[in-house]
Design a binder for these strands. Structure first.
Length: 916
DNA sequence: TTAGTCACG
DNA sequence: ACGTACGTGACTAAC
């Protein structure tokens, strides 16, 4: 059987993919859609054809021979979009990683290379496929060379195939004649002039009849229409030139042998390098194609499953003194995690009598060949594992998610003496969390699974847990195939062990080691304590609150149906939009991608005139309160009557924390009815809440970082910063500032922190853009250093690619280099906001550690419960109220040394409503 | 799974 | 001319 050759027109297919797919980027902000689309098309072709040879041809950016001939003839081709341009080297990198033959020859266009190679292939007796989005290549089609043109349609990619006969069928001319058609009609995008007055129709008809431009010329006198007849003579030279230009060279002097393009099996393409690159570009769908048991991964053969107690003891003995990476595997991980709780006495209950094992097992790594999975049940107990872990003389303890481990063990002993306290601090310093390290190094990713760390920092390709387990739980997998079940756990612990020092070095190189060591790592222990402590909820009161809401909702629902004249789902923006803007014909319909906008912003404008709209707004408010807060929180109450939120330390781009299951950082406060829910959050018996929040911490950070004298002095003079801003910006005495002026000044202050834009401010204040621009101008005139600072921040970010906080925390801003105005503007606002928001986040993190540690060191029964970005809530033993208030004041205000004071407002009460 | 909406700082 | 404020998470409908 004859051999098969597949030739791909690199730029053309990349271009097709770029315009055919939405704008994909990975977490680093690298655009990836064209590369992704290219690979999909390529793999589809390869799987279909199973070729023996594969080659991709690219143009070089240098001007080519044919273009030079027409020097001075300005092309109409637009410059390549930068989002596509940056993908060209990436594409080549990917192809090289796959070992695919790339041909790019100085002086020839890709077309000529493709023509030459297809011709040579055919001469060797091969069947050739040329993949391109460019119809010009149809001239290459023969009986053995087919041109394949992928088309992206809604239903997926379809490929049009053309052998010589198909070209004739579709275009009424042979492939060779196709050149002549083009010579007559021209092609502006290829700088081929053609003959004036002859378009596609005429050109095709003429060539179909006569066969070539020469024949048309010879029969010029009989050619119709007359215009064509005249021009073919008048512009004959141009026609000949055009034919030369349109003709693809098939005998170019390209150095090439089929040996270098050989592809005996598609699997050859799935190399380790390609896998790592696909991982980086986040081509999750492609990863499944890689044969993951390739011999390049050696970890899996090194781990050992241990069930025997004696053997386990031996291993722990061997581990002593080394750097240990570990992970505790909670029992029944398939079920929803039971969170560890602190008992009223302050001691934890880990081993309730009669209960099954707390842990299914534990993983441990301390060397290339020391990777272990201990399984409980047959001799090894949870207690043994935790004891062994506690008592091990480890030089360092490494985890990929330390806070999760701390759910199942308690490294803090009693704190009473100075010695015990120092011991506690030493203990904290001995830990490394690779997830947090990776987060600091790139906070844009949101997730830091071992396979990413392995590929990014170790250059190793490891299959992810999802790839190994599918949807099965660890327990299910364990029964089915012990070895596979062990894999992701062992990969995780090995990666953490191996990457630890590399991450440390990287953090040091980037000036973030202090941030990591002094802020983020201690914070892990603080957050762990806060989560375990939990906040008490009055479940009964919560239920009553929900019932009350349900009644009001029901009343509103009926009123809305009555006014609408029919029943419908008010919660469906789609249905609601139709009712309001079609049935009831309300004005000012705004559109979203999918239909009418029914956002509060839109509805609020209509509410005064249309009672049904204000009903809907109330309904929205009440259903939100009921579903998210009344019902949502009730679902999260643990057996101890408390809510134990999870604080995420590796989510936000700026360095803030986030809170989930439930989110306790967005409990209502702005509207009275919503704020009521805070009454159900209460302290334990003999305790009360003390709550402190920073006063305008972000604006103070800005004042300090910019060094603006005027703003710094403003903070020294008065506590009402918005009022003094209004007074200074509008040049009026402080006491004569009207409420409206103060409101405007407040909006400008917020706007500055968000990365000011006249449009944003105008939206917020419902004023014209021009007015907003004037406010901003006056603001900057008043505080010139602020403008200087913001401009400099953006400039620096553009140069370095990232912003930095006062404590060295970085945030990459890839949008700054976008060619898209909107994206770039976004990047500029981000660059202005991130150092401010991030520095504020750093400061309250420092405060949290200091408050937590003071409470601990002073042997208080009071404890930190929640952080809400600029607020700390402390459950305070009544006798310690003054002590706690002192600690909060000292530690929050002393957390950073800024050019302005950090002021706090402190309140206390019997519940969160009263305390804030 | 995604889009729309809305709660917070 | 472009079309927006910065940072989050939960719930619902509808694909």
């Amino acid at each position: 059987m004859s051999k098969k050759l597949v030739l791909i027109d690199g730029h053309s297919i990349l271009n097709r993919a770029f315009f055919g797919l939405p704008d994909l980027t990975n977490a680093e902000g690298v655009h990836t859609n064209a590369v992704y689309g290219f690979l999909n098309i390529m793999f589809r072709i390869l799987e279909e054809e199973k070729p023996d040879y594969l080659t991709v041809a690219f143009d070089l950016s240098a001007p080519t021979f044919r273009h030079k001939m027409f020097d001075g003839y300005k092309g109409t081709r637009k410059p390549m979009a930068p989002e596509l341009k940056e993908q060209v080297p990436l594409m080549k990198e990917m192809l090289r990683a796959m070992g695919i033959c790339i041909v790019e020859k100085e002086g020839f266009e890709a077309d000529d290379v493709l023509g030459t190679l297809s011709c040579r292939g055919e001469q060797e007796g091969m069947e050739v496929s040329v993949i391109s989005g460019d119809r010009d290549l149809l001239q290459l089609a023969t009986e053995h060379v087919q041109i394949r043109i992928p088309k992206t349609k809604k239903t997926g990619t379809e490929i049009e195939n053309y052998y010589a006969k198909d070209v004739k069928e579709r275009y009424l001319v042979t492939p060779k004649e196709f050149i002549d058609v083009k010579a007559l009609m021209g092609d502006t995008s290829d700088n081929i002039p053609g003959v004036p007055g002859i378009g596609e129709k005429t050109a095709t008809a003429l060539i179909a009849q006569y066969g070539s431009i020469e024949a048309v010329y010879e029969h010029a006198d009989e050619v119709k229409p007359p215009r064509a007849s005249k021009n073919i003579v008048e512009f004959w030279d141009q026609a000949v030139m055009s034919k030369t230009l349109a003709t693809i060279i098939t005998d170019a002097d390209v150095e090439y042998s089929f040996d270098q393009a050989e592809l005996s099996d598609i699997q050859e393409l799935y190399t380790e390098d390609a896998y790592v690159l696909c991982k980086r570009l986040e081509f999750k769908n492609l990863l499944g194609r890689f044969q993951l048991d390739s011999p390049t991964i050696n970890v899996e053969e090194q781990f050992q499953i241990v069930k025997d107690q004696k053997l386990a003891e031996k291993i722990w003995k061997k581990a002593g003194g080394k750097s240990l990476a570990f992970h505790l595997i909670p029992a029944e991980s398939g079920k929803k995690k039971e969170k560890l709780q602190t008992e009223p006495g302050g001691q934890m209950s880990l081993f309730e009598t009669g209960k099954k094992e707390v842990l299914s097992g534990m993983t441990l790594a301390f060397g290339e060949e020391d990777i272990y999975l201990f399984l409980t049940g047959q001799g090894i107990t949870s207690e043994f594992l935790i004891d062994a872990w506690q008592n091990a003389k480890a030089s360092r303890r490494i985890s990929s998610d330390l806070k999760a481990e701390l759910q199942y063990c308690q490294p803090a002993g009693s704190i009473g003496t100075e010695e015990e306290w120092n011991h506690y601090l030493d203990m904290r310093k001995g830990y490394m969390d690779t997830g947090i390290a990776a987060y600091l190094l790139n906070p844009l990713k949101g997730e830091y699974p071992y396979e990413d760390i392995a590929s990014e920092y170790l250059g190793m390709m490891l299959p992810s847990k999802a790839e190994l387990f599918g949807k099965k739980s660890f327990e299910q997998m364990l029964e089915e195939d012990e070895n596979t079940a062990a894999k992701p756990l062992c990969y995780d612990v090995y990666t953490a062990w191996k990457a630890s020092e590399i991450l440390e070095k990287e953090l040091k190189d980037q000036g973030m080691w202090e941030l990591y060591q002094n802020i983020e790592m201690p914070l892990v222990f603080v957050l762990s304590d806060m989560e375990k402590q939990g906040i008490s909820i009055d479940a009964q009161a919560l239920k009553e609150y929900g019932s009350k809401l349900a009644e009001s909702i029901s009343v509103l629902e009926h009123q809305i149906y009555e006014k609408a004249g029919e029943q419908f789902n008010i919660n469906s923006p789609k249905q609601l939009g139709v009712i309001l803007f079609e049935k009831l014909q309300l004005p000012n319909a705004k559109k979203t991608k999918t239909g009418y906008s029914t956002s509060a912003e839109v509805l609020e404008k209509l509410a005064p005139e249309y009672p049904i709209v204000s009903d809907i707004l109330s309904y929205r408010q009440l259903t939100k309160l009921k579903s998210t807060y009344a019902d949502g929180l009730a679902n999260c109450i643990a057996d101890d009557g408390k809510i134990h939120t999870t604080f995420n330390q590796t989510i936000t781009a700026t360095g803030r924390l986030s809170s989930t299951e439930p989110n306790l950082q967005n409990i209502p406060i702005r509207i009275e009815l919503g704020k009521e829910i805070r009454r159900v959050f209460h302290p334990e018996k003999d305790f009360l809440f003390v709550d402190s929040d920073y006063s305008q911490i972000e604006l103070r950070v800005l004042a300090s970082m910019s060094g603006d004298r005027q703003l710094i002095d403003a903070y020294r003079q008065h506590s009402d910063i918005h009022r003094i801003t209004a007074s200074q910006v509008f040049h009026i005495p402080f006491d004569e500032v009207t409420p409206l002026q103060r409101r405007n000044a407040k909006a400008v202050n917020f706007g500055i922190v968000y990365g000011i834009s006249s449009f944003g401010l105008s939206q917020d204040l419902s004023i014209s853009r021009k007015e907003a621009a004037e406010y901003i101008e006056r603001y900057f005139a008043t505080y010139p250093k602020i403008k200087e600072f913001l401009d400099q921040t953006v400039k620096d970010a553009k140069e370095k690619g990232y912003t930095t906080t006062l404590f060295g925390r970085r945030r990459p801003v890839p949008e700054l280099s976008s060619s898209n105005f909107m994206q770039r503007s976004f990047g500029e606002r981000v660059a202005m906001n991130s150092p401010i928001q991030g520095t504020a986040a750093d400061i309250i993190k420092i405060a949290m550690i200091r408050v937590h540690d003071r409470l601990m060191k002073e042997n208080c029964r009071s404890r930190l419960l929640l952080q809400v970005h600029d607020e700390l809530l402390v459950e305070t033993y009544k006798e310690e109220k003054e002590q706690v208030e002192k600690i909060l004041a000292e530690e929050m205000q002393g957390a950073a040394d800024l050019a302005v004071c950090l002021e706090i407002d402190t309140e206390s009460g019997e519940n969160w409503y009263e305390a804030h």
